[in-house]
């Protein structure tokens, strides 16, 4: 859990594979990298077995670049598509049994605080909609009520994509899927309201068709979780296989869904705003009152 774990043991440089050497010499560790620098540095994420054109992979790639301190971060995941990519990054990954990822992250985050004290060590949970809203629901809500200080990210593809297309709590009402041929009979769960009721300090929805926004949302969530309390991000990451979206139209679909039902929303608690302002010079964007806009005529 420091820069030492991304260095070579003495004398072993020349035996290391090229990807490993690139990672140590030109990776994101120990320096600030941003989304606008993509394509010119070696990323922590490596090759992975996710489907071609998967929006979830794009989100995971952006999220891993956005971590404020990748060398001090541990990711926690559970069964589902997402872990296939998250586990292929040069960041320690803990694989929880199905549904217990927020329980595992609670213990991990408390243990790291005992061991390292004030030195920031970030725990980020990235799990699918099934892992977060269905099977892991109880542990997710309890970790929020306990105000555990880590970030929960839901990779919401609105289906159980890894097991053939069953409906999940986050599937939209009426959606017909391969393993739900009659259409879903209930509404999509409102996890955002539940996160606010449970006392999360930061709640946001995001769609990966705006990479810089994904970056800023992840950075804020991880920084707030260091000191203030639980943070929750819900990201729309379409499943192009189960929803039969042609791969080259994945971003078009993301744009349509963003305009339709996944608008960017952000809730920052007063305590979190104060923390961000004092430490990082955060300025809240507020629309100008009508009187302040100069009259063009």
């Amino acid at each position: 859990m420091s820069l030492d774990y991304v260095k070579f043991s003495n004398g072993f440089e020349k035996f290391m594979p090229k990807e490993y050497r690139d990672m140590v010499e030109h990776g994101p560790f120990g320096k600030k990298v941003t989304v606008s620098q993509m394509g010119s540095f070696k990323e922590a994420l490596e090759e992975h077995p996710m489907c071609a054109g998967c929006a979830m992979t794009l989100f995971i790639r952006l999220a891993i670049i956005a971590f404020p301190n990748p060398e001090d971060t541990i990711t926690v995941g559970t069964a589902g598509c997402g872990r296939l990519a998250i586990s292929q990054a040069a960041i320690p990954f803990v694989y929880g049994n199905y549904g217990d990822q927020n329980g595992v992250a609670s213990g991990l985050s408390r243990g790291l605080r005992l061991r390292f004290g004030d030195k920031p060590k970030d725990v980020v949970v990235m799990a699918g909609d099934g892992g977060t809203a269905d099977i892991g629901f109880q542990q997710v809500l309890h970790s929020w009520f306990r105000k555990e200080r880590f970030t929960t990210i839901m990779l919401d593809n609105e289906v159980y994509g890894n097991t053939g297309g069953q409906e999940s709590g986050m599937t939209n009402r009426g959606a017909v899927l391969k393993m739900a041929p009659l259409g879903k009979k209930f509404e999509k769960m409102d996890m955002l309201q539940m996160a606010k009721v449970a006392g999360c300090a930061y709640v946001a929805t995001v769609v990966p068709n705006n990479p810089r926004r994904v970056e800023s949302v992840i950075k804020k969530a991880v920084l707030i979780a260091r000191e203030v309390g639980s943070t929750y991000i819900q990201a729309y990451t379409s499943c192009n296989i189960e929803y039969a979206i042609p791969t080259d139209k994945v971003m078009e679909d993301a744009k349509t869904v963003e305009n339709d039902r996944y608008q960017f929303t952000e809730y920052v608690s007063e305590e979190a705003k104060q923390y961000l302002t004092e430490r990082y010079g955060y300025k809240e964007f507020l629309p100008k009152p009508a009187a302040a806009i100069p009259n063009k005529a």
Partner: peptide
Amino acid sequence: CKLCTQYCPEANTIQY
């Protein structure tokens, strides 16, 4: 414009 480098789902595939 470098937009494609930010949208590829594969890491280090579109380089600049």
